[in-house]
Amino acid sequence: MEIPVDKHVAFHDLALRWLPDVTRFAHSLTRNESDAEDLVQETYLRAWRHWDSFRVGSEARAWLFTIARNAWRKRAPRDARLVAVEDDTLQALADEHFPLGAPNDVLQRLSDADLRPAIHQAIAALPEAFREVVELVELQELPYAEAAAVLEIPVGTVRSRLFRARRLLQTSLLEYARDAGLAPVHAEKESSQ
């Protein structure tokens, strides 16, 4: 993309174009529409004030996510936001016993179902450390390295948190399947690894 010389045009072209993504990221942090709107406003205000420090050519979206996350961390008391998570290695996570509990007919029903409400709910219920990784990598489709930079964690931690988050989402979807009558209540005993 050609970089506009005018600051206002550059801000419009490089920063405001990501407003839908920043809004969704803000919502994933706040889980509240009104707070998300406030956070987006604050994010863009900070971005505008510090636009001269933005390195043109770098990833504006990741920069905005970083501003939003820092603003949220300042605003929300840390103890209220964070549930401590253990960052196990990918190998340790893969070696964990993970009861699948979904025979093929249940998987087929899940595959055919509209899972959007269930997955929204499941993502919202994730601990913040996992939710923000899912938001950045799965929903915003940031490369692992960019997500790691926004979250200020190693790439390996992004990968292990995503691994655990996806398993938590699978567990939630199985609960949804049982609640929706797509799976028998005893399904968790039928398959395990």
Binding site: P20, A102, S191
Partner: peptide, 25 residues
Amino acid sequence: CFPHANFGQIVIDAMAQVRNTPDNE
């Protein structure tokens, strides 16, 4: 591993379905 792979794909597909623009843009 076959059902695990299938279930993994279901989760990935479900998340792809919720990559949308916020309603209140």
